[in-house]
Amino acid sequence: MMSLNLEIIQESETHGIEINEMIKLVGSLPIRKKKLVVSMQNYIKEMAEFEDTDVENDYQKAIEFIQNLEEDEVEEVCYYIADLYKDIEF
């Protein structure tokens, strides 16, 4: 497993809530990049009925971040976020 650079760590923490929510919905690690992105896109569609554009924007930014990562970086970010949020309930 590679080490994440500081920039990726900081950006993943910015989108940690969204990534953690998808980890919980998918229910297992590792999560492949495509599955994470599709899960987020589906979540945005589901949230559209509530017309919460702030949440939609947050998820869209998280998708853009994930899409700019390599597959192995996505998996490592997911493990990092899962560990970071393991004791936090929303």
Rank of each mutant, 00 (worst) to 15 (best):
M2T: 11
N20D: 10
M40V: 02
Q10E: 15
T53N: 05
Y43M: 04
N20F: 05
N42Q: 12
E56K: 11
T53K: 12
I9P: 09
Y79Q: 12
R32K: 14
C78I: 04
L25T: 02
E64V: 03
L84W: 10
I9L: 15
M1P: 04
V55Q: 06
I17A: 01
T14W: 10
I23D: 07
E49P: 03
M1G: 15
I9A: 11
I44V: 11
L6R: 13
E70Y: 14
T53A: 05
Y85K: 04
I66Y: 00
Y79E: 14
G16Q: 00
E89A: 08
V37E: 09
N68R: 15
M1A: 12
I9K: 13
E89K: 11
L36E: 02
L69S: 03
Q10G: 09
K35Q: 15
K86Y: 02
K24P: 00
N57R: 12
I17W: 06
T53F: 15
L25I: 07
F50G: 09
Y80L: 09
E75H: 14
E76V: 06
G27T: 11
Q60P: 03
S12I: 05
F65Q: 06
D87W: 01
M47Y: 09
P30M: 08
E13G: 09
A48T: 09
Q10S: 11
I31H: 07
Y43I: 02
L69D: 03
